[in-house]
Design a protein around this nucleic acid. Structure first.
Lengths: 199, 199
DNA sequence: CTTGTTGGCCAACGCTCGTTGACTAACGTA
DNA sequence: TACGTTAGTCAACGAGCGTTGGCCAACAAG
């Protein structure tokens, strides 16, 4: 729905190609299929059909299915800075709200979660996001940097668990929770994992 | 590893069949494959190979792949009673410890989580477990029974999130958490979702 | 206009899958 | 011993998959 990217893979790099529209259509279709079907059931043929091109084009542009997945799923959580003294005490709420925004506007996150569960490359990609994006934020804020990995893992468990039950498994009571309820319940949890003294 | 079942589907019902050993071997192999590979990549041929029989036997005994999955994955969480006045204040810790025991001794849980993410029938099975097993316990303990679905969903999000990061995605910091650490961090969270006044 | 390059389609390959049905061996009973 | 039932094997089917290579059309540069 959003226009985060449409044509060229890396905007402003290299010469624009005549095929950029097709490349973009393939990536968009791939993201949607991976998000709804997971890795195995998202077939190249179905993705090509969605993009209204021939399956062989996918191979030409992205090499193979794994290459397509790698190109389609690039995630930048754009985590907000919560290291300021005024924001530190509010980090839980800020992070929960940010995650809800992300998950509800970006099908790539659903795609990666679905793929990570049945595909080793997908699982490693998620490990990388924890390590390169969530862990640094945690390290900046939590009391003892040595505890940062454990605290980041706990935060990931709660945030991914919410995404799992609400956006992937679509368990009715999790779907029916209002956004404000989720924030009210989860913010203290995340805040505790982030800054509370270790129990 | 545990001997919760070995031969006949429903112990003590119907006449024992000569093929009960084979049926059991098929179910055991199916559970293992579904747990490690998920639904699509767990092929009937591989399961039959593990059980040292012909793939057609699987079809004969369980009809088709969905039937095999339904027979292989039957989950009873055996949730402890935490409605007693003395246990109510400790429900969080008791439930977290119980879940850890379950997940570490029962590959069926991993199988169902892996399958639920990419398979509609699996997702519905998980919804049923929330509804029929976790929800009743929550309803008995939480202050306002009308809030039970929301509270149960919150508990499920944290507990399934831990299982996801630790047992499925195997994120290193989540794997390295000691059992006591997990209990110490998660018990207050679950306790709060269970009994704290709604925020 | 010619020619090289790029974008795209088509038909087929080899493979694996779930599933089927015919056939054989072992068993239990009379 | 004879026979129906059960357990199991074997070979094949149709379909869908990822992937390949050859071919044609549109464009850009000389």
């Amino acid at each position: 729905m959003n226009g985060s990217d449409s044509t060229s893979t890396v905007p402003g790099s290299g010469a624009p190609r005549r095929s950029d529209a097709t490349r973009g259509a393939i990536l968009a279709a791939a993201r949607e299929r991976f998000a709804t079907d997971g890795y195995e059931r998202a077939t190249i043929r179905a993705i090509a059909r969605d993009a209204s091109i021939d399956p062989s084009m996918v191979m030409r542009y992205y090499g193979n299915k794994e290459g397509l997945f790698a190109a389609a799923v690039a995630i930048d959580l754009r985590l907000p800075d919560v290291s300021g003294a005024d924001r530190r005490q509010d980090g839980g709420r800020i992070l929960v709200e940010h995650f809800l925004d992300m998950w509800e506007n970006n099908e790539v996150l659903t795609a990666l979660l679905r793929v990570g569960v049945t595909n080793q490359a997908g699982a490693e990609r998620m490990q990388g996001i924890l390590r390169d994006q969530l862990l640094p934020v945690t390290r900046q804020v939590c009391p003892d940097p040595e505890q940062a990995p454990a605290r980041a893992a706990l935060m990931a468990s709660q945030l991914l668990g919410l995404a799992l039950t609400r956006y992937v498994l679509r368990m009715p009571p999790a779907v029916e929770l209002a956004r404000a309820e989720i924030v009210a319940w989860l913010a203290p949890t995340i805040q505790r994992y982030l800054t509370a003294p270790s129990p």
